[in-house]
Amino acid sequence: MRVALFVTCLADQFYPGVSEATVKVLRRLGVEVSFDPAQTCCGQPAFNTGYREEARLVAARNLDLFANADADYIVSPSGSCTSMMRVFYRELFEHDPLRSAQAQAMAGRVFEFSEFVVKVLKVDDVGARFAHRVAYHDSCHLLRELGVAEEPRRLLRAVRDAELVELDDNRLCCGFGGTFAVKFPEVSAAMGADKIKAAAAIGAEYLVAGDSGCLMHLAGLIHRQGAKIKTIHLAEVLASH
C-alpha cells in the first residue's frame, strides 16, 4: 500500500519530529510512504480568516499536486489540515465544477493519521512503548469535522506501559483556533490555561493530541507558566519504543 504524506507546514517547520514519527509508524506497518517536497500549506489560515480567494490559490495547487500523486491514500498527522482538505475544499470550490470534482476525489482519499491506522490499516497495536500517564486532548476539527474520537484512544490503550486518563470535559476546545489565537489572544490563552489545569488535575504527565496547532499553543502556555506537564503528538507516542 502506498501513501502520499501531507506533513503540514507546522510539522514541517516547527515539529519535523512529528512528521518523522508518522513516517516511521506507517513504515513499521508495511506502508510505502512518499513525500512530495512541492507541498506547502493546506490553505487554512486564509480560509479561516475569510480570505477565500487566497485560500483557493493554495488549495487548487494542492488539488493538482495530489491528483497526480502515485499513491492509494493521502495521510496527514493533523485533524485540522485533513478537515480542510476533506471538508472545506469542497465548500471552497462549490461553484467550480472542475475543482469541485477534484475536491470530491481528494475527500475520498485523504485520511488523518490515527483514523488511517485504525480504519484503513485496521491496526490498534503499533508495537509502541511509552511509560507515562497520558491524557488525550480531542482537537476540535478531528473530533467534530472528522468524527474521530475513538481511534486515537484505541491506539493509546494499546501502547505498552502507557496509562490513558480522561480529561474532565474532554470535548472542550483548547483555544488555539488558528488565527483566533492572535485575534483574541487573551481568550485563547485563558481557554488553553483551563485545558492545562484539567490535565494537571488528573496527574497527566503528557497531553497528547493529533494536531500540532493545539500542541504549539499548549506548549507555549506551559513554557510561559513554567508548568511541569509536557505535550506530545500522537504519532510521536506511537513511534516510541
Binding site: V7, A11, D12, Q13, F14, Y15, P16, G17, S19, E20, F35, P37, A181, V182, K183, P185, E186, A189, G192, M216, H217, A219, G220, L221, H223, R224
Partner: peptide
C-alpha cells in the same frame, strides 16, 4: 506580539522535515 502576550512560541526546528 499577540501570540507571545501570554504564551511563548517555539522557534523553528533547526532543520525542516523536507
Amino acid at each position: 506580539s499577540a501570540w507571545t502576550r501570554d504564551r511563548d512560541l517555539p522557534a523553528l526546528a533547526p532543520r525542516s522535515f523536507r
